[in-house]
Computed example of a mutant assay.
Amino acid sequence: MDVSEGPARLRLENRLLVLEGPENRCWSAPVEEIAVVVLSTEWVRLSAPVLTALAAHGGVLIACDRRGLPVATTLPLRGHTLFPQRLRLQIAAGRPCQKRAWKALVRAKIRAQAGVLRRLHGEDGGLETLVEKVRSGDPENVEAEAARRYWPRVFALPEFRRDPDSAEAPNNLLNYGYAVLRGMVARALVAAGLTPALGLHHRHRENAFALADDLMEPFRPIVDEQVARILRGTGREVGLDQEIKRRLLEPMVGRYFYEGAWRKLATILHCLAARLVDVFEGRANKDWPLPTSWDGVWRSE
Score class of each variant (00 low, 15 high):
residue 1 M to T: 13
residue 9 R to S: 05
residue 10 L to Q: 06
residue 13 E to F: 12
residue 16 L to A: 04
residue 21 G to L: 06
residue 22 P to Y: 09
residue 23 E to I: 08
residue 31 V to S: 07
residue 36 V to T: 15
residue 36 V to M: 15
residue 36 V to Q: 15
residue 44 V to H: 06
residue 49 P to L: 12
residue 49 P to W: 08
residue 61 L to W: 11
residue 63 A to P: 08
residue 72 A to R: 07
residue 76 P to N: 06
residue 86 R to E: 01
residue 91 I to C: 12
residue 92 A to H: 14
residue 95 R to M: 08
residue 101 A to Q: 02
residue 106 V to H: 14
residue 108 A to M: 13
residue 110 I to M: 07
residue 112 A to W: 05
residue 115 G to I: 00
residue 116 V to Q: 03
residue 121 H to L: 14
residue 123 E to I: 03
residue 138 D to N: 00
residue 138 D to V: 04
residue 139 P to M: 07
residue 143 E to C: 03
residue 145 E to L: 11
residue 146 A to E: 11
residue 147 A to F: 01
residue 156 A to W: 09
residue 159 E to D: 11
residue 169 A to G: 02
residue 173 L to C: 04
residue 175 N to M: 01
residue 175 N to G: 05
residue 178 Y to G: 00
residue 186 A to Y: 03
residue 188 A to F: 04
residue 193 G to Y: 05
residue 196 P to T: 08
residue 206 E to I: 09
residue 210 A to D: 04
residue 211 L to N: 03
residue 213 D to Q: 05
residue 217 E to L: 14
residue 217 E to P: 13
residue 218 P to T: 05
residue 230 I to F: 13
residue 230 I to G: 10
residue 231 L to D: 03
residue 239 G to S: 15
residue 247 R to M: 10
residue 249 L to D: 09
residue 257 F to M: 04
residue 276 L to N: 01
residue 286 K to N: 11
residue 289 P to R: 01
residue 289 P to E: 11
residue 293 S to H: 09
